[in-house]
């Protein structure tokens, strides 16, 4: 069963077409990777799915429901969670409070009920020792972890991750892969945009290639990576 379905979705910023007639389905429980050059429109695709940007045309269905015109808040409440490529923490709130906002509002529960869940997520994302530090004082690496942790706190059915592995050491990257695999193992559907290909392919079952806003490939990661279009785009970039 498909949890997310995009049909002919398009988006332009002025004369620039950033999403060009994108259609694809994501199956329940699947992990989909998205690759493509910088500026291909990957983050915009996420913004369209989460409602932070409105589509010019086409339709987006989540669990069979038309959410094309739903607000970002509504989409969060029905189970779409996300991280931002450029971290967007609530700077004056502590790390723990950042998760509290997400857990209490994203799940509509009281602070007392979500406390242990939030603490658990902070442990899993290795932020627990920074729990009482204002998010504005975190390093970039910690901010990226907070993006993941905060998205997890809304307890999404579909989790969108936008380039959270960049700049990690090999050890940190392995830890992140374990965390994401663990989330996936709990039944969460994942779409992950990532330039760190070995991290991506160790998690995802399907790969989507985006170029100039167009879906130019979708399928088994190995076949996709071996295809001529992808080789052309990634020529010179390590695979």
């Amino acid at each position: 069963m498909s949890i997310l379905s995009l049909k002919s979705v398009s988006k332009s910023f002025g004369a620039l077409t950033v999403t060009d007639d994108a259609s694809f389905d994501v199956l329940q429980g699947q992990a989909l990777g998205i690759i493509g050059p910088n500026g291909a429109g990957k983050s915009t695709l996420f913004n369209l799915i989460t409602g932070n940007v409105r589509a010019d045309g086409g339709s987006i269905h989540f669990e069979g429901r038309d959410v094309t015109r739903a607000s970002a808040m509504e989409r969060c409440l029905i189970g779409i969670g996300r991280s931002f490529q450029i971290p967007q923490p609530f700077e004056k709130l502590t790390v723990y409070e950042n998760l509290l906002v997400a857990a209490t509002h994203g799940r509509n529960l009281s602070e007392a009920i979500v406390r242990d869940d939030c603490a658990d997520i902070l442990e899993r994302t290795e932020l627990i020792r920074r729990a009482n530090v204002p998010a504005g004082r975190l390093s970039l690496l910690e901010r990226k972890r907070l993006e993941l942790a905060r998205a997890m706190a809304t307890q999404p059915k579909l989790l969108l991750l936008d380039e959270i592995a960049g700049g990690l050491t090999e050890g940190e990257c392995q830890a992140l892969i374990r965390t994401i695999k663990d989330i996936h193992a709990r039944g969460v559907t994942i779409i992950w945009i990532e330039h760190v290909l070995h991290a991506l392919t160790s998690v995802v079952e399907r790969l989507l290639v985006l170029d100039f806003g167009k879906v130019i490939g979708l399928g088994d990661p190995e076949e996709i990576m071996a295809s001529r279009e992808v080789q052309e785009i990634y020529l010179g970039i390590e695979v």
């Binding site: 969060c76 967007q88 923490p89 700077e91 004056k92 409070e97 906002v101 509002h105 509509n108």
Partner: peptide, 19 residues
């Protein structure tokens, strides 16, 4: 909490379910 979140970052607040 929601108020503080909106003040710090409205777009992110909406994305975690804040009205």
């Amino acid at each position: 909490l929601a108020l503080a979140a909106v003040r710090d970052n409205t777009e992110a607040a909406k994305s975690v379910g804040v009205d």
